[in-house]
């Protein structure tokens, strides 16, 4: 019985969200407000059970020595963060923000080097003539490698800021745009399938779990 009731709740919420496609209406407004309110609480509970409790509370309870007392630093930063509630001490929250931003900057540098720059550049070190199998096969791979290297280089030229895009630079950056547009189109087309699957999932819920038509 509970199952049936809750299936109806889920169906109502599903239809209420879909109704937004026609226009804004009280049903959507209701579902939206329920969603925002309950999800804010959901993630609060989630953070408690998956982050704060294991990392801070359990960390304090089960660790000893250095590993235990070092946790005072994040605890203090957290309290500083909450100082925004007390006007005269609100400036302390900037200390906590400063830490997170500093961390962002540090990670921004290392992540860019490790995750993007070095591997992407290494990956463009490709031979322009490959002999593998038949002549046409080799030619195909070679052309692909050439296009890959060329495309990467001209795309980088598009992001050249300190000179006007005229003459040679202009031609290169226009070629860059060509690659960027082909890439964006392809990426758009590639995503369609996954998104349709999502809709199929919802429609199936409505006609199978709720209405039992199929």
């Amino acid at each position: 019985m509970a199952q049936v009731f809750w299936t109806w709740v889920a169906a109502f919420l599903t239809l209420a969200i879909f109704s937004f496609l026609y226009k804004d209406n009280p049903f959507y407004k209701f579902a939206e407000h329920i969603y925002v309110g309950s999800s804010a609480a959901f993630w609060f509970v989630y953070l408690w059970y998956f982050d704060i409790k294991p990392k801070l509370i359990d960390g304090w309870r089960y660790n000893t020595g250095f590993e235990k007392y070092i946790l005072i630093i994040p605890a203090v930063l957290s309290i500083f963060m909450l100082m925004r509630f007390i006007r005269p001490l609100a400036w302390l929250s900037r200390w906590a923000i400063a830490f997170t931003v500093g961390m962002a900057a540090g990670l921004g540098i290392t992540a860019a080097l490790q995750g993007y720059l070095v591997p992407q550049i290494q990956a463009t070190f490709l031979p322009l003539w490959v002999s593998k199998g038949s002549f046409w096969h080799s030619l195909g791979i070679s052309i692909n490698n050439f296009v890959l290297v060329l495309g990467t280089i001209v795309t980088i030229f598009y992001f050249y800021f300190s000179k006007e895009h005229k003459g040679t630079l202009g031609a290169l950056s226009r070629a860059g745009i060509v690659f960027i547009m082909v890439a964006f189109g392809a990426s758009f087309g590639y995503t369609v399938m996954a998104r349709i699957s999502l809709l199929i999932g919802r429609v199936y819920f409505l006609i199978h779990d709720w209405l039992h038509i199929v």
């Binding site: 369609v192 399938m193 349709i196 699957s197 199929i200 999932g201 429609v203 199936y204 199978h208 199929v214």
Partner: peptide, 18 residues
Amino acid sequence: KALAYYGMTPQAAVHILI
């Protein structure tokens, strides 16, 4: 045959529709 099997037709149809 359920969700996925019958979902392949709309999948293809929607791509073509777009």
